[in-house]
Amino acid sequence: MVTLEHYLILSLALFSIGLVGSLYRKNVVIILMSIEIMLNGINLSLVAFSRYLIPNELVGHIFVLFIFTIAAVEVAIALAILMVIFYKKNSINSSDLNLLKW
């Protein structure tokens, strides 16, 4: 018997894993992937809420569709910036990107 709580705990676990990954990894690509994992956790909770609490209105699905769009845009721009950083500094470690560090 799978209930709403199961889906919510799964989505929360995904969010927490993405959070710890984006906080402690140095590689910028891994940080981007962690952010994608966090977004997917949020999507999962939105669909679960929509399915269990208001099954006759698909508003949660609409939100998820827009998050898909934003995620695609975010990854495209971030990877373009990443390429430029890599060509300039020959590194994609966040600890090497310290130009603005005081």
Binding site: S16, L19, V20, L23, Y24, R25, K26, S94
Partner: peptide
């Protein structure tokens, strides 16, 4: 991994 790993895990 950077040196703030224990803090990151704690927050998570």
């Amino acid at each position: 991994i950077n040196r703030l790993m224990p803090l990151a895990i704690l927050i998570s």
